[in-house]
Nucleic acid binder design. Structure first.
Lengths: 146, 146
DNA sequence: CTCCCTGCAAACTGTTTGCAAGTAC
DNA sequence: GTACTTGCAAACAGTTTGCAGGGAG
């Protein structure tokens, strides 16, 4: 992920502590997701996983992706390319920008979103417990190269 | 849709002006979507449509929903219940709140979002052309009745 | 040794497509 | 009459499930 790095070791620890077994498939997938700059579907993750580990089963990848999502290590991306793509979760950074040109994803500072949510709660009377915000457009690099 | 009403006539006019033919199926579906308070999937819309018009085909509903989405009359909802639900589009009101308790959807004032986007553009250097923001929680009514 | 994880194949769900008949204009 | 629209059935893609064998603790 752009602008910030994830240590696959931390994820393995998290998986381990959740009572799941540390296996080669999980290790492979964690390695993949911890490094991607682009949202990845389970199907694509399967393709990539088989490069490193040809016999990997499709169902196993789907199950592992679900596990990682439940653990909060990866996060589903909603929007243009569909709703079955995943990016690594970076704690407390919940605003995601996706470049429609190069496809890369980047987390933005989420403080403005926190303020927006507080403001909306006050004016509407609703209690907001979760949010999905994704922004789309052209990243700084792609604007220059256009 | 809560807090604001849509006149199905306006939609029929919009469909007509787009070069599509005004047919009974389209009229039925427009009637359905213009009135819903809850996000509706194409499958659900098919069920409702058959109450009024039993012989309605499933594919026709899917095709019509796609048409209405392309015309911008309805809008896809991303989130908790999945990503294949639709609500009527209200111009310039792009912040959607969905109650996880009663399921109702409500548009909120989107001005704070406009400001947030401007702010994010300035700090990141990206050019933002579209956004998806959905908020989830408990609406004012459901909090009272809890 | 026990239980979880894995791969395979089959089942399933939501959605799309091809085509002949129907309908608006 | 022409071209778009419809209903039906079949095809399709992504995802989930059942199960027997394998591997971790």
């Amino acid at each position: 992920m752009r602008g910030k790095t994830i240590d696959p070791e931390d994820w393995l620890t998290a998986v381990d502590e959740s009572g799941f077994r540390a296996t080669t498939v999980q290790e492979t997938l964690i390695d993949i997701f911890a490094r991607v700059e682009y949202p990845l579907s389970a199907e694509q993750a399967w393709d990539v996983a088989r490069l490193a580990r040809p016999k990997t089963g499709r169902a196993t990848v789907y199950r592992t992706v679900e596990k990682l999502e439940n653990l909060g290590l990866i996060r589903r991306v909603h929007g243009y390319q569909g709703c079955s793509y995943f990016v690594p979760t970076l704690p407390e950074l919940m605003m995601l920008f996706i470049c429609l040109d190069c496809g890369r994803a980047e987390y933005l500072d989420s403080q403005p979103l926190d303020e927006l949510i507080k403001q909306s709660e006050d004016s509407s009377g609703h209690h907001i417990t979760d949010s999905r915000l994704q922004l789309f457009g052209a990243c700084a690099d792609c604007q220059q190269n256009a």
